[in-house]
């Protein structure tokens, strides 16, 4: 697809707490590659960018993910305009 093609799906990716610090950003706008359809796919694509994503989002790491502010699983689908957040297990209270 052309870069200015309006059909390109973009999402907002948010990072919190330790992940925000490690990635050096609180958020980023991501153009979704066509093959990314769900949370598992997004995680794999982010890891493919190399470190520190590869290390921090490796399978088995205690990372929680929310899609549009609801807790998600690896199978939760992702589409244009979605807000996807990555964060460590919560420690409030």
């Amino acid at each position: 697809m052309k870069p200015n093609d309006s059909r390109i799906a973009t999402i907002e990716v948010l990072y919190f707490a330790r992940l925000r610090e490690v990635f050096g950003r609180a958020s980023e706008r991501v153009e979704l590659p066509a093959e990314v359809k769900d949370v598992a796919g997004l995680g794999a694509w982010l890891r493919s960018r190399g470190e520190p994503w590869e290390r921090e989002l490796a399978p088995g790491k205690p990372v929680r993910i929310a899609v549009n502010q609801d807790m998600a699983t690896a199978a939760t689908t992702i589409g244009d305009g979605d807000e996807v957040a990555f964060f460590p297990p919560v420690t409030g209270g």
């Binding site: 919190f16 707490a17 964060f87 919560v90 209270g93």
Partner: peptide
């Protein structure tokens, strides 16, 4: 709250 609300210390 301690396990489901997104707060971090």
């Amino acid at each position: 709250l301690k396990t489901r609300a997104p707060f971090w210390k």
